[in-house]
């Protein structure tokens, strides 16, 4: 016992260093998988509040750009409302049918904090569980897909963005229907990669890439970007498809959170898939 105490006293600096280092590193390596410790992120009330004040100042830097984007979206929507159509046939009667059921609802939010040059980048939103946000919901903007909700508190939420290594959103090439998973190489905020496209297929340059709508996180057909180039993956029969994102995440502010009203139904159905089929 005395020897042990002597040992502790002799190496107390190193032991204390190792203890604190252990705490810090276990926080760092466990967080991306299990977001347990909410008060250590910008989703907590104190730091979230500070970020909101800061955002009140910096949001004006990108104001004109964001307004233009919103205006463009408005024009696109305005084209579809009844007042912009001419009636061709007055004899038609509109009947309220049961063929269409609403599947998705959208919750508007503003990004109040974000990083872009780290290996894994998280964005903070100013809406939380009180507005109906839940973990695992998809997030997109007027120009393209943004990420998936990672962590929610009462008034704030943290998004795992398209600028994290394993974002794994289901995407496909719009024309041909080839699908794969979205990944990020950790360096360039304008480009991502599409993983899982077999190299016996033809991938055309500048063809549009959209979400596939698998898993019920995103509706089908939300813009992701365009194919910039395809490279060969060594040792695997796959293309390494580089995508140029349609959204510039460095000046992004206004986003929508996707609420899938039929998600429980889809999950229940997919639970019935026998497990032994998977490897």
């Amino acid at each position: 016992m005395r020897n042990f105490l002597a040992f502790v006293r002799r190496f107390r600096v190193l032991l204390f260093f190792a203890l604190l280092q252990g705490i810090a590193l276990s926080l760092y390596f466990s967080f991306s998988q299990f977001p347990r410790i909410q008060y250590l992120t910008t989703a907590s009330t104190v730091t979230g509040g500070i970020m909101e004040v800061r955002n009140d100042v910096t949001k004006h830097f990108y104001l004109s750009k964001n307004n233009t984007a919103l205006q463009k979206e408005n024009i696109a929507l305005r084209k579809t409302i009844p007042s912009s159509f001419i009636k061709l046939n007055n004899g038609l009667v509109k009947i309220n049918d049961t063929l269409h059921l609403q599947q998705y609802e959208y919750i508007p939010g503003i990004i109040i904090n974000s990083t872009h040059d780290k290996r894994n980048n998280y964005f903070t939103l100013n809406i939380g569980s009180q507005q109906g946000v839940e973990r695992g919901m998809g997030v997109f903007s007027a120009k393209g897909v943004v990420g998936v909700i990672h962590n929610v508190t009462e008034h704030y939420a943290v998004i795992k963005s398209c600028l994290t290594e394993n974002i794994n959103i289901d995407i496909m090439i719009e024309k041909t229907g080839l699908f794969g998973l979205l990944k990020w190489n950790g360096k360039d905020a304008r480009r991502g990669t599409m993983w899982g496209v077999s190299n016996d297929t033809e991938v055309k340059k500048w063809s549009k890439v959209v979400t596939r709508g698998g898993g019920g996180i995103f509706p089908r057909g939300i813009n992701v970007g365009k194919v910039e180039k395809t490279d060969v993956v060594e040792g695997k029969p796959l293309w390494d498809v580089t995508i140029r994102y349609s959204e510039d995440y460095r000046s992004l502010q206004r986003v929508y959170v996707v609420k899938n009203l039929l998600k429980i139904e889809q999950e229940k159905l997919e639970e019935l898939i026998p497990i032994e089929d998977e490897q």
Binding site: A24, S32, Y39, T41, T47, N113, K118, V158
Partner: peptide, 15 residues
């Protein structure tokens, strides 16, 4: 770390 969403990275290197 808490204010930049890095979860212990700054703490570790400052230690």
């Amino acid at each position: 770390d808490a204010m930049s969403n890095t979860y212990g990275l700054h703490a570790s290197s400052l230690l």
